[in-house]
Amino acid sequence: MLRWTDQRMERFIGGLLRVGVLLSAALVLAGAVVHLAGHAGDRPDLHVFRGEPLALREIGGILRGALAVEGRGLIQLGLLVLVATPVARVGFSVFAFAAQRDRTYVLVTMAVLAILSFSLFGVRGHP
């Protein structure tokens, strides 16, 4: 079995980040094209803060929108992939440090992962 040396870990992380960014950019671009195709003549109004509709604030609603090939849902899914990329990097590091039998850094990395999970899943939006 190949050992997860620091160098090998770094190479894998580099590839992971690249795939995440490219996938995210592709989804955002596709969503922007779909949205603009239907709304090119809209008058955007971002001067006043209203907050996004709930369907664009939670993972379930975003997935439904994206699967329906709805422009804003697709963009939001791409943005979720973007946010998930560094989170995946931290998640992978837990595994890699475990493979190195480095208990201290397994704990350190899990602490970071817990904070990130709280932000992504633990915060309720106000309607």
Partner: peptide
Amino acid sequence: LARGYLDPVLA
């Protein structure tokens, strides 16, 4: 995201 700050059309 939960607070509705992430507007897809702007982002």
